Amino acid sequence: MEKITKSIQIFLFFSVLQLGVSSSIFWSGQSLALKQSCLIFLLFLLILAGSCTFIQYLLSKDHKPKQLLHQSPHLFLLYGSMIVFNIVGLGLLLSETILTTNSHQQVTLELLVPSFFFLFGMDLFTFLTFNKMKRLGHQKTISLALIVSSSSLIFLNPITILSIGFYIALGGLSLRLLFPKKLRQGISFYSHIIRNILFVVSILFIW
């Protein structure tokens, strides 16, 4: 299972590079909607995922939070497959144009599309370590962030890049600031499950 964890970390790292290039050069779509309804939907997702994780904690024998890796290899494999599905979905969103025919489809699209980037941010903060960033010091970290942010202005669609970065950062910071480290995999796992269920339901009944 440790090899699977390392594989997920490497996959996420290269996904960041690939998605960064795709969003800055190839994606000609509009920026992601920054609406109150989107934020409420993501908050609803976090609350449900947190509730599921808390129930799992109550049902555990020793009442101690455990990583999915130590609970069940099958659950961890399912978790890894959902991470891959989410990243593939990101790639399709950046390369394809999704057409809607009515207002219900448009509203559903505006709610679900940001969740792919939101969950991607959660996965990054769950699996990738940022110790090297801490070693750079706060001043160098801020300088690096300013360089990366200002460099987005030279690309074709800086507003799109900033909107994508906002939802990725929102997902990662929500997980990091609201939940302890031992619960983060569980929160991310159940967030993926809930979003995927809503995604399948919306395809079956709205599209």
Results as ranks from 00 to 15, higher is better:
57 Y>F: 12
17 L>M: 06
70 H>Y: 07
5 T>K: 14
80 G>R: 12
104 H>S: 13
30 Q>T: 14
24 S>Q: 10
206 I>R: 10
29 G>A: 13
180 P>K: 06
170 L>K: 02
188 S>W: 08
182 K>W: 13
136 L>G: 10
47 I>F: 11
22 S>T: 01
133 M>L: 15
165 G>W: 02
33 A>L: 06
98 I>G: 00
146 L>M: 12
60 S>I: 07
88 V>E: 10
16 V>S: 13
142 I>D: 11
46 L>C: 03
3 K>R: 08
121 G>V: 05
53 T>H: 00
76 F>H: 05
205 F>A: 11
49 A>S: 07
110 E>N: 03
74 H>K: 14
188 S>R: 03
124 L>N: 06
194 I>F: 14
31 S>N: 02
154 I>R: 04
125 F>S: 05
17 L>F: 12
169 A>V: 10
37 S>W: 02
130 F>Y: 15
178 L>W: 11
133 M>Y: 15
198 L>Q: 06
84 V>E: 09
195 R>K: 03
146 L>N: 11
204 L>W: 10
69 L>S: 10
44 F>M: 07
41 F>Y: 15
13 F>K: 06
49 A>E: 03
25 I>A: 03
185 Q>S: 10
92 L>F: 11
37 S>V: 08
155 F>G: 01
69 L>F: 03
70 H>I: 00
191 S>W: 06
166 F>N: 01
154 I>A: 09
94 L>M: 11
6 K>D: 15
181 K>Y: 15
190 Y>P: 04
150 S>M: 11
45 L>H: 09
111 L>V: 04
33 A>P: 01
170 L>D: 04
16 V>L: 14
96 E>G: 00
126 T>A: 07
29 G>N: 13
32 L>P: 05
59 L>M: 09
175 L>R: 00
187 I>K: 00
10 I>E: 09
51 S>E: 11
202 S>P: 03
32 L>S: 02
11 F>Y: 15
77 L>Q: 10
61 K>A: 13
200 V>L: 04
115 S>C: 07
190 Y>L: 05
13 F>D: 08
127 F>N: 13
132 K>G: 13
160 T>C: 02
34 L>M: 10
64 K>E: 07
1 M>E: 12
190 Y>D: 01
185 Q>L: 03
8 I>L: 14
56 Q>R: 12
189 F>L: 12
190 Y>W: 13
138 H>D: 13
147 I>L: 04
179 F>L: 02
184 R>S: 12
20 G>C: 04
62 D>Y: 00
150 S>R: 03
101 T>W: 06
164 I>Y: 11
181 K>V: 03
14 F>C: 12
187 I>H: 01
